[in-house]
Amino acid sequence: MITGKKQAELIKEISGVNPLKCMKCGKCSATCPSYNEMDIKPHQFVSYVLNEDIEALMQSESLWKCLSCFACVERCPRDVKPGKLIDAARQLLIRQRGQEYLSPDEVPELLDPEIPQQLLVSAFRRYRR
């Protein structure tokens, strides 16, 4: 079992985000289309990482309610990008569960040119077989 501290470091490494840059303006939560679905709100992701409470973050509904629309990433004035943090937490969870990705052979038939690439990547992670 890895510690919360180690997990927090992993999340920072995967996301490339420095949560200390946050000035707590809440623009991420103001911008989020899934806000009402989430138990932990986008602006709170930052403090969960800072408090090294990663288990709670990985257990949260928000992990699967985030659309990866990246509006919060785009609009964050402090370059903190909460969407990347939740994305990293999701990756961490998936890695812990083991091999649950789609196999590369299945990808071509799922491709739809209308779907934004980010959503596709996100969907691959979520709707694994």
Binding site: K24, C25, G26, K27, S29, A30, C32, N36, A71, R75
Partner: peptide, 29 residues
């Protein structure tokens, strides 16, 4: 209200939809 505005969107009725954070009440306005 403590919280930044995420977006302002012009509405068909001519008004402006303001979507913002209320950080102290932990809600989206």
């Amino acid at each position: 209200i403590k919280g930044q505005v995420g977006k302002v969107a012009p509405q068909p009725n001519g008004r402006l939809l303001v979507q913002a954070s209320d950080l102290l009440d932990n809600r989206q306005i």
